[in-house]
Amino acid sequence: MSGFSALKRRTVSWIVAGLGASVAAGLSLGLAVMAASQPAPLKIVGAGEEVDTGRWRVAATGAGFKPADAKAAGYLDRQNLLFVRLRFTNLSAASSNAYVSVASLDLPADGLEAPTYLLARDGAMVFDLHPDMPEDVVAAWKWPEGRAVPQTLRVTFAGQLYKRRDNLYGAPGWFPADPAAAVDLPVKTVAAQ
């Protein structure tokens, strides 16, 4: 008889102990499902308005199209270029070249190579952008011959979030998050730069 009551007591404590853990697991799963089922609408900003994407503060200040100049000295100048002027500020604690994956064009992607990034100041190639040093850069896409140039361009800014300990190694890192914002820019055709 005392044996049975002991068993009952043990069972009760098992259930009580398991209850807390089950509630916690269920809650986290439920919250994750809820968050995924209601994606936040994409925020549209104006030209020149700064957006915080987590790791970068970015503003798109203009877009344009430069037709090819066959007699130019530089390789890029001899191509048709669709370009976007961006101002980046590195908000993270280390120099990084991850700015190349922030801005993407809302166009059918066939035939477009990854853009080249140049400093707006002197046309030099950009490598890393350093913390707390805002820079104006130009992202230039080689535009295929004969393809119609759009009148307006939508540039989407991808977001990133920082985890102090990731799920695999427990190491700190930046991970993709939802898109932060998008901006619509008119495309002006310009002469040689």
Partner: peptide, 13 residues
């Protein structure tokens, strides 16, 4: 390594 902890990697330019 700046006094505020930020790391400025040597320039590759």
């Amino acid at each position: 390594r700046a006094p505020n902890g930020a790391r400025y990697v040597a320039s590759k330019r």
